[in-house]
Each structure stands twice: as structure tokens, then as C-alpha cells.
Computed example of a mutant assay.
Amino acid sequence: MKKIVLTAGLLAMSFGMAHADPIADRQALMKDMGKAVGSVAKIAKGEQPFDAATVKTALETLATDAQKLDADKLFPEGTETGGDTEASPKIWEDRDGFKEQIAKYQADTAAAVKADPQDLESFQMAFKSITANCGACHQTYRVKK
């Protein structure tokens, strides 16, 4: 009986994975990254006191999410139209450039975590680099609705 339940559960999971919605998945990932940026934006602007634990948590979230940015899985052919998406057609026209942008973001977020900023100035430098990546990618590969 346990084998039947386990098998049914595994089949249900694999069915759900096979029919994942890349548009919804990438939007959820972008929202999570936006939430992490928002959690430390006031610190970066000097509007809130520097808090190393909050900064570390946000940077770790950004780095973890960055590793989930897979152009082939989240932006497959056929998802450039349809659905409620702000993805620019340039993603599919300039695939290599898009992947390079993702790789740079992944490297910069990983470097920020490794640097483990312990003061406002070092955090601001890392944050500026990360958000510059966001801005550059959004400017080139996003169509704001």
C-alpha cells in the first residue's frame, strides 16, 4: 500500500513539474528578487541604519535566486508571446547577450555574499553593482507595460 501511495505521489509531482509555467516561474523569481532588494534599499540609501544580518539575508536571497535564473528553462521558445509578460523579444533575438547578462548578475551576487559587507560603505558598493545589473537587464530585455 505504501508503494502505491509513494508511486502515485511521485507521478503527481512529475506531472506538475512537466507542466510548469515558465512565465509564472520567472515572474515569481523576479518578485522574490525585488522583495530582497526592497528589504535593503533604505539601508543602501542611508535612510535606515546598517544591519549586517538583514543585508546578509538579502544578499544570500539574491545570490540563490540568481542561480535559478536559467534562460533556457525560464525563457524557452514560445514564451515570448502570450501570457502577462514584460519579457522583451530581445531575449530571444540576443540569446547569448541575455545569457551573458545573467552570468554577470550571478557572479556579482555571489561576490557580494562572499564579501559579506560589514559596514554601509562596503554594502553600498556591492548593492550598486547588483542593482546596476538589474537595471541594465531590465533596460535591454524588459518591456515595461
Rank of each mutant, 00 (worst) to 15 (best):
63 A>M: 11
132 A>P: 02
118 Q>I: 08
90 K>H: 09
98 F>G: 05
46 G>A: 02
112 A>G: 08
132 A>M: 10
40 V>K: 01
108 D>G: 11
50 F>L: 01
130 I>N: 14
8 A>N: 05
127 F>E: 04
108 D>H: 13
32 D>C: 01
105 Y>D: 05
30 M>A: 07
119 D>M: 12
79 T>Y: 06
27 Q>Y: 08
62 L>R: 11
7 T>K: 07
136 A>E: 12
131 T>W: 05
21 D>E: 06
61 T>E: 01
115 A>D: 14
98 F>K: 02
145 K>A: 07
59 L>V: 04
127 F>G: 14
61 T>H: 01
33 M>E: 13
67 Q>C: 05
67 Q>R: 09
69 L>I: 11
96 D>F: 02
12 A>P: 01
67 Q>S: 07
86 E>G: 15
110 A>V: 03
131 T>C: 06
36 A>R: 03
37 V>Y: 13
41 A>W: 03
9 G>H: 00
85 T>Y: 07
145 K>I: 03
126 A>Q: 15
19 H>G: 00
42 K>L: 11
17 M>Y: 02
122 S>C: 05
30 M>F: 12
17 M>N: 00
25 D>Q: 06
119 D>Y: 11
31 K>S: 11
34 G>Y: 03
51 D>Y: 09
96 D>R: 09
26 R>S: 00
1 M>S: 15
39 S>P: 02
94 D>C: 06
109 T>A: 08
138 H>S: 01
112 A>F: 13
100 E>K: 13
68 K>E: 12
78 G>C: 05
87 A>C: 08
117 P>L: 11
131 T>Y: 09
105 Y>I: 13
90 K>N: 13
132 A>C: 03
27 Q>D: 12
73 K>P: 01
54 T>G: 06
70 D>T: 02
79 T>N: 07
5 V>F: 14
59 L>H: 11
31 K>N: 15
96 D>M: 09
74 L>Y: 08
49 P>N: 13
46 G>K: 04
44 A>Y: 04
50 F>R: 02
142 R>G: 03
122 S>W: 06
15 F>Q: 10
125 M>S: 12
93 E>Y: 04
25 D>C: 00
79 T>A: 09
88 S>R: 04
23 I>A: 08
53 A>F: 01
23 I>F: 00
40 V>W: 04
30 M>L: 13
114 K>I: 05
120 L>C: 10
84 D>A: 14
81 T>P: 07
38 G>P: 05
78 G>Y: 08
102 I>R: 04
63 A>R: 12
73 K>M: 00
137 C>M: 03
113 V>W: 14
62 L>D: 12
37 V>H: 04
45 K>L: 13
